[in-house]
Every structure is written in structure tokens, then in C-alpha cells.
Design a binder for these strands. Structure first.
Lengths: 224, 224
DNA sequence: GCCTTGTATGACACTCAATGCCATGTTGAC
DNA sequence: GTCAACATGGCATTGAGTGTCATACAAGGC
């Protein structure tokens, strides 16, 4: 029981400064990362081309040169291999928010925070676009994506409450503000994937936050 | 192929004025409804008590007096039997919004629309509370719930765009406004299920909409 | 009455996701 | 060299979900 790596260790995500005080990555760790990358690559390739339901885990694993059993040692489910592609985003948004100046208005701080992963997507271009489209088009993936986003929201809400000195247990503002920021995120992602890169993601983000900003910055929402 | 009832016919949902110009329900239809109710009842009972993963579809079907195969003729998946309990809510919200006076501010119209299902939950009391808690506690159910809610949002956005004479294809406001209204819905549901009915749902709804209202009613969001 | 048609069901077989268990191979420390 | 830790593959098993077929039952038509 103790020996199992367990998919919770999330080998697909990058190191991130969590625990482990920056020890040099051992050989075994890099090997694990290599297999994870290989699996992700094979999965995205096959899934994007043939559709989520038309590809079996066995096929993905074989294409990556491992057994089906090994696949499940790296990813908790077939959905995971796709959704984990966006794994670190939640933490990225939260960390970005924490790094913004304390005096900044919530709408500005959240806009910058949410832009971090959106900018990454925009940079990765075609590759990210294919993944996003696959997720939005496949119900099972979309459901898992939304579930993960709900976790982001709770995370963001906690950070926001801390930032503003509010009690997330009684105030509704932190949760709703986090949710609104992610609504903007979703709207941009959706429009971006639909238009096929036609509209500038940064401009889209500005437009989306212009809509939600009045609620984010209204003082009325934070005392009551 | 043509003869299959297919789970898409959603026997669990109430009649609703969709197609079928109000024909008297035939015997077979009521029989179907009876089996669906029996399955739903057996499922909610067992799932709430033993947990989602600890109950097999076979057990649910047997408890309802039918075969596993029949279960899947009524519900598309094990998650469906729970989530469909909240099936008509999306249409309810949309219809309620359509019924509000055209001059009403968006925040007020949406608050009333969202209150419809929330009020139903509050009325059903213990029963609804058990279902909501089960959904929020079970990842697989939560994911499906969020997916369904995304469909509500698109529906609501379309109605809102129509109501305000906006083009949902170019404007971001309809989608974001619908999303914010459902954020408030979620926040209320979450708080209500956590507190164990301690706080009045109606008052909670007012508080939640007080937070998002500035964005819903800001004229800036609707021209750009 | 009988016959036909449509629909609901159950039984069976099958695919595939996901997990547990065990045997084996590889790596690295001592 | 030995030993422990870990990664892997193979195998078996559970359970979700689907296709197929045979049966049963209801509603007409004659």
C-alpha cells in the first residue's frame, strides 16, 4: 500500500515549489516524467484525431510503449490524461493573485491572475487549441474540467478572502468573485476556441472583465 | 433501432409543455413513469445511505424490482438517476426569466428566475437536502451536475440575449450574466447544504444577488 | 374469437474502464 | 554481492454500459 506511487502524485505536473526544497531532480523522477510526457503525447494525438470514445486506454498505452496497467499508475482515469494538461493552472492563478499588489482593485488583480494561464494557452497556439476544443466537445471531459475548475474557485476564493481580510465562512463575496473571474476565463476560452484564434485573447479578456468588474469592485458586496 | 425508447426521452422528467399537445397520458406512459419513480426512489435511498461507489446498478435495479438492463433503458448512466432529479430546473429558470416583465432590471429578473428551483428545494426540505449533499460530496455526481448547469447557462444566455436584443454571438454580456446568476445559485445551494437549513434560502439568495447585481445591471457591460 | 404490430422486459454475451495482486526487472545504497 | 525500493507487466476481477434476441403483453383490425 505504501509503495504505490498513486496517481495523486500527479507526475504530469511540473515541479512547482511546494514541498521538496528544490532538490535536484533524481534520475528516477526524470524517467517518470518522460513516461508521463510520452503518454500525454500519445493520448492527445489519438484522442484529438479519433474522438474520446473511439480510443481505448490500451491503444494509448501501447502507442506510448507501456502497458495499460502502467497507464493507470500515471493517470487516475482516461479523462485525467487530458485534463491534467491544464493541471497547474489553478495554482498558477492563485499564486498570481497572491503576487499582485495589495492595494490593487479586485477586478484588476483577478484579471492579471486569470491572464496567466490564458496567456500560456495563447502562446502554445495550435496545440492548446486542440486540447481545449477536445475538452469542450467531449461531455465526459467537459464535466471533469468543470469539476477541476470548481476546485480552482474554492482555492481562489480562499486567497481572495485572505487578501481582503474577509471571512469566507460568512461572506459570499470571495466565492462569488472567484466564480465571476473564472466565468470570464471560461467565456474567453470558449470564444477563443470557437473563433479559431480570430480574436485576440488579451482583448477578449479585457472585454470579459469589463462586464464583471462592476460587481468585483463594488464595495457593497464586501460589507453587509 | 427505431423502437428503442432511448434514455434521451427522459422518462423521469415531468410532462412539461413541449411537444404533445396535452394528450391524456396513456396507460403505458403512466406505467413508464411508475418504473422511473421506483428506480429513482430506490437509487436515492441506497446512494444517500451507502455512498455512490458502494452501490451497484444491479442493486438499485433489483431493489426497484427490475433488471439491470432495464435500468439503463430509463437512465443513461448511474449518475443520471441522481442528476435527473434536478432535470427540469434549467428549463424552469429560463421560462421564469421569459415570464418576467421586460422593463425589469436584469438582476431582479434573474433573481426571481433563479429562485424558482431554489424555492422548490427549500420546500422539499429534507429530501432535496439529501440529494444536494450527495451531489456535492460525490466527485462523479458533482462533475455531471456542473456539466448540466453549463447547459442551463447557455440556455439562459440565449433567453437573456433575446430579452435585451443583444447578439449572443458577439456580446459577452449574456453568457457572463447567465453565469453570474448561476454562480449565485451555486453559492446559495452550497451554503444551504452546509449549514443544514440554518440560514433562510430566500435571504441568502438576496445576499448573493446583491454581490453580482452591480455587474448585471451595469449598462457598460452591454454596449462596447 | 384470432392475428398483427408495437413496446417493455429479461437474459445473455460482450467491450472496456479501473483496481488488486503478484512476479519480475532495474536501480542505487551499503 | 546483497538488499531494499521502485517501476513494470501480466493476470484476474469487478462493474458500467451496450447490442442482440426471445418472450410477454397491450391495443387495435378483421
Amino acid at each position: 500500500m505504501t509503495a504505490t506511487p498513486s496517481p495523486d502524485s500527479r507526475p504530469g505536473s511540473r515541479p512547482e515549489a511546494r514541498r521538496e526544497p528544490r532538490r535536484a531532480t533524481t534520475l528516477a523522477e526524470r524517467k517518470r516524467q518522460l513516461v508521463a510526457d510520452e503518454l500525454t503525447e500519445a493520448a492527445l494525438q489519438a484522442l484529438a484525431q479519433k474522438g474520446f470514445d473511439a480510443v481505448t486506454v490500451d491503444e494509448i498505452a501501447t502507442a506510448a510503449g507501456v502497458s495499460k496497467r502502467t497507464f493507470f499508475r500515471y493517470f487516475a482515469s482516461k479523462e485525467d490524461v487530458v485534463v491534467q494538461f491544464l493541471a497547474g493552472m489553478g495554482a498558477d492563478i492563485r499564486d498570481a493573485l497572491a503576487a499582485r499588489p495589495a492595494a490593487e482593485r479586485p477586478s484588476q488583480a483577478l484579471r492579471h491572475a486569470v491572464w496567466v494561464p490564458l496567456g500560456q494557452c495563447a502562446d502554445h497556439g495550435e496545440r492548446a487549441l486542440r486540447v481545449v476544443r477536445l475538452i469542450l466537445r467531449t461531455p465526459a471531459l467537459h464535466a471533469r474540467f468543470l469539476e477541476r475548475q470548481a476546485a480552482w474557485r474554492d482555492d481562489l476564493a480562499a486567497e481572495l478572502a485572505h487578501r481582503l481580510g474577509l471571512d469566507a465562512g460568512t461572506e459570499l463575496y470571495p466565492r462569488l468573485a472567484a466564480a465571476m473571474a473564472l466565468d470570464a476565463f471560461d467565456a474567453v476560452l470558449h470564444r477563443w476556441s470557437a473563433d479559431g484564434c480570430a480574436e485576440d485573447p488579451a482583448a477578449l479578456t479585457d472585454r470579459a472583465f469589463a462586464v464583471v468588474a462592476p460587481a468585483l469592485d463594488a464595495r457593497a458586496g464586501r460589507d453587509a
